[in-house]
Amino acid sequence: MKLTETKYQFLIQQYKNNIYSYALYMMKNRMDAEDISQEVLIKIWQNVGKFNILSAKTWIMRTTHNLCIDYLRKRQSSYSKEYSIDEEFLESFADGLEENNPLIKTHLKMMTDKVKEAIQNLPEKLKSVFVFYEIQGMKYREISKSLDVPLNTVKVNLLRARKKLQKELKHYERQEIF
């Protein structure tokens, strides 16, 4: 097997979930997220010999981010939210483990969904920094390179995103009460 193929396979295994997950947060629907992931994976294959393996993450996430922005511009406001049945979630009720207690699991699932939705509703600039840092575990420097913004902007946007998210979740809580 050629070294290029090995490198490509390694990159796919390592970053496919990060690519898809980021695209899903940005696009808010699975179809677009899958299309973007596919395009990014093809771009990696086309450029696999051109970039250093150690700086690959930054390159890949920048490409993903840029594609998401392109898609969002094309789509403009024709956004349709997707409601899908989580088959895995339904299947988990079948086994009688305590940790799979439907009540607890439903509550946790609702909480997670609520947080995910709140993250998705953040403004783009704040959301990209927040997802990179909190969900994908990237460093400030990596985010700065990926988004091509100064390091301080990353820090400021992350703080703003955290505050905004807190506000959004409070808003949800109030909606639940009333």
């Binding site: 496919k16 979930n17 898809y20 997950s21 909480m111 997670t112 993250i119 909190e134």
Partner: peptide, 11 residues
């Protein structure tokens, strides 16, 4: 809650 979220798996 945020930190408990894992990246979604790529289909």
């Amino acid at each position: 809650s945020v930190h408990s979220i894992k990246p979604d798996e790529c289909p």
